[in-house]
Write a protein that binds this DNA or RNA. Structure first.
Lengths: 146, 146
DNA sequence: AATGATGTAAATTTAAAAATTACAGGAGAA
DNA sequence: TTCTCCTGTAATTTTTAAATTTACATCATT
């Protein structure tokens, strides 16, 4: 029913990996410390990003690196990688409207009509923002700390 | 962190009230039966819609009616009435990134930059859809049931 | 007054998200 | 070749948020 904190954690990790992935070994433990999120949760999330080709993880010895240019990583892609049907969970629908009521009988279809538009708009909105944008925001803040 | 089912239940109720509110007394009990949602939840939700001027409830004796034209009731207005800060809860953020890490220290501000754009886009998207649209979808389905 | 409604608070239940525990398996270092 | 550090993933437990339930004061009409 929502875009979970996993998306925020994923962006955090991706920025971290971009900044440090080449210089040092970025493990799930390190990302766990930086994000304040459980290392198993991190591993599951990184694993999903890996399947989408966003990151690469060195087998056996560990360590994550980016696997594609920042400009190709949109928020849409991150959300979809982590939670395949995230957009259909955006707005919750009540499960048991009465089939005996004319409104209840049709409400799911009525809602779907409009919700589909909203879901599409959201996806477009998420496609417009890339990790490149976010890293540049990050760097700007790095040097203007207030 | 998401748009709850309350929004869907509210739309269901508003269509119901539009269709039957003038002919019969639409009580929370009746809406509870039609939606399959608890009557106290209905009353709380109707109460929020009332505060926004979307519906009127007859005091004492009960019964809800629409209080403004369908075309003025956008999904944005419904969402905001029910959950004042719904858009800020759209995407969850991890609560405890490490303040000792350069990324952790700035991540909330970085996320806010982009998330603000997404929230605005969502609000615009919700403003484009009115209850008038949804009622006409509903009526179309009424006569073409499949 | 009696009835049938709303409005709201407080407590309980339910369901979803996240954390924890546990462990098999891979790559490199000792 | 065995030890260590890491990943991947399953199963369980804890935590949190949403929704329901219970309860009752209050307000018009009959």
């Amino acid at each position: 029913m929502h875009i979970s904190t996993k998306c925020s954690v994923a962006i955090h990790c991706l920025i971290f990996i971009y900044e440090y992935g080449e210089k040092q070994k970025v493990t799930s433990e390190l990302l766990s410390l930086s994000t304040g999120t459980n290392s198993v949760t991190i591993r599951n999330m990184i694993s999903a990003l890996k399947k989408d080709g966003i990151v690469a993880v060195k087998a056996g010895t560990g360590g994550a690196t980016l696997n594609c240019p920042l400009s190709e990583i949109t928020l849409y892609r991150v959300c979809r990688a982590i939670e395949p049907n995230f957009s259909s969970k955006l707005i919750g629908v009540h499960a048991l409207p009465s089939p005996l009521c004319p409104v209840g009988k049709n409400i799911h279809n009525v809602l779907d009509c409009s919700y589909q538009k909203i879901r599409n708009d959201l996806c477009e909105s998420l496609k417009k923002i890339t990790l490149e944008d976010m890293v540049s925001d990050y760097r700007r803040m790095q040097y203007k700390p207030d």
